Simulated assay, not measured.
Amino acid sequence: MQKAKSNDNPNQTKHAHWKNVKKYTPFYLMLILPVIMLGVFSYGPMYGIIIAFKDFSPGLGMWRSPWNNFDHFTRMFNDFLFLRALRNTIWISLLKIIISFPAPIIFALLLNEVRQMTFKKITQSVSYLPHFMSWVILSSMIVEVFSPQRGIINYFIGLFGVEPIHFLASKAAFVPILVGTDIWKELGYAAIIYLATMSAIDPGLYEAADMDGANRFHKMIHITIPSIMPMIIVLFILRLGAILNAGFDQILNLYNPMVYEVADIIDTYVYRAGLEQFQLDYATAVGLFKNIVGILLIVFANMLIRRKSEHGIW
């Protein structure tokens, strides 16, 4: 009887599988266009990384250009400007991970405790708004706020007899401005996923905690945070993999030659090398290096976290 049961199980599993496929056929059809777009615009152009290993000449084309025996990668690690950009990228990204990453978690936890629904909805709407504005618009606002002639900050410190400060040209002030404005732009939108995760927590857990005499702080620490921890871990792994993405749009629209020493990152370095100096092959090599490091960091972080817990991306 057991043998007959084992023979029937594969058929039942196969039948259930095709039943699910038939049930969700409209959703599979909806995926066709996104998958095609992903292949055409994300995976299709990847063949272009071959020029990172060549002395690319537009006249000869990609395939006929000569191989360079990894000269671009050798040049990369001997270039002071690249090493400076790498250092700045890691430093700015680490600051954003340490300061910006926990900010939406804290905001979501605090917002989850608000019981006045009108105030909660208004706060959410106001906090979401900057995310939907481009850095071109936001940078114009930030420049005006910190302007030494028209800025509101310099106006207030001028009331105390302090001379106007050009914040965006100050090496000491520029990086804190980057971190602060990054939090301002993404705080509300990044908190959405945590609020959605909190809404799925079993209310019975809170009711049981109430019966045990737990206050709201205890429930946050012992129920809410452990419940959203898997989501925090997944997002942290993905954020760690993007450690060499320090915010190209933000920095490109805010920085200037006065702060290159602390603000020039890999992406702006690639932008200048590739589009301004037309060194497409060298810029491709730098970009390839950055992406390989990002993939390795994701794999390593996921492997490390899986050893310590059951959570991870895979």
Rank of each mutant, 00 (worst) to 15 (best):
L60N: 11
K19Y: 14
P104H: 06
A196L: 09
I251K: 10
M231G: 03
F300P: 00
N112Q: 10
G180A: 14
F248T: 06
F80A: 12
Q2P: 00
L83Y: 14
S199H: 13
K96S: 04
P230H: 15
L254D: 00
Q124Y: 11
K3L: 12
Y24W: 14
Y155M: 06
F289R: 07
V126K: 14
P230R: 11
M76T: 06
M117L: 15
G59Q: 14
E113L: 10
V114S: 08
V259Q: 05
L138K: 01
W91N: 02
D202K: 11
M303G: 03
F289P: 06
S199G: 09
D281C: 06
T25W: 15
I137S: 06
L280M: 14
A283Q: 09
A169E: 14
K96V: 00
W135V: 00
I183C: 05
P45W: 15
L238H: 02
N291V: 10
A191K: 13
G287P: 04
I305K: 12
M76A: 07
F41D: 06
I237S: 11
D210G: 00
A85K: 07
A173H: 00
S309H: 10
L138P: 00
N256I: 03
M30G: 01
E207H: 10
T181I: 03
D55S: 15
F80Q: 09
I90H: 05
Q149C: 01
P45F: 13
H218T: 08
I295C: 12
F27E: 06
L238W: 09
V35N: 04
I313N: 12
A85P: 04
A108P: 04
S134Q: 08
H222Q: 02
F156Y: 14
L275H: 11
I36T: 03
F160M: 07
T89K: 13
P34F: 10
D249L: 02
V162L: 04
P45C: 05
I232D: 05
G180N: 02
S100E: 04
L109Q: 02
P148H: 03
F146S: 00
F278K: 06
L29V: 10
S134V: 01
A246P: 08
I193V: 15
A190L: 09
A242R: 15
A242D: 14
Q250V: 05
W135A: 01
T123D: 07
W67T: 04
P10A: 10
P66R: 08
R87C: 05
F27V: 01
F174C: 03
S134P: 02
M37R: 04
K3M: 09
G312T: 05
R84M: 12
G274T: 11
G204V: 10
I90Q: 03
D71V: 07
V143W: 02
G48T: 09
M1W: 14
W67M: 05
F107Y: 13
T25S: 12
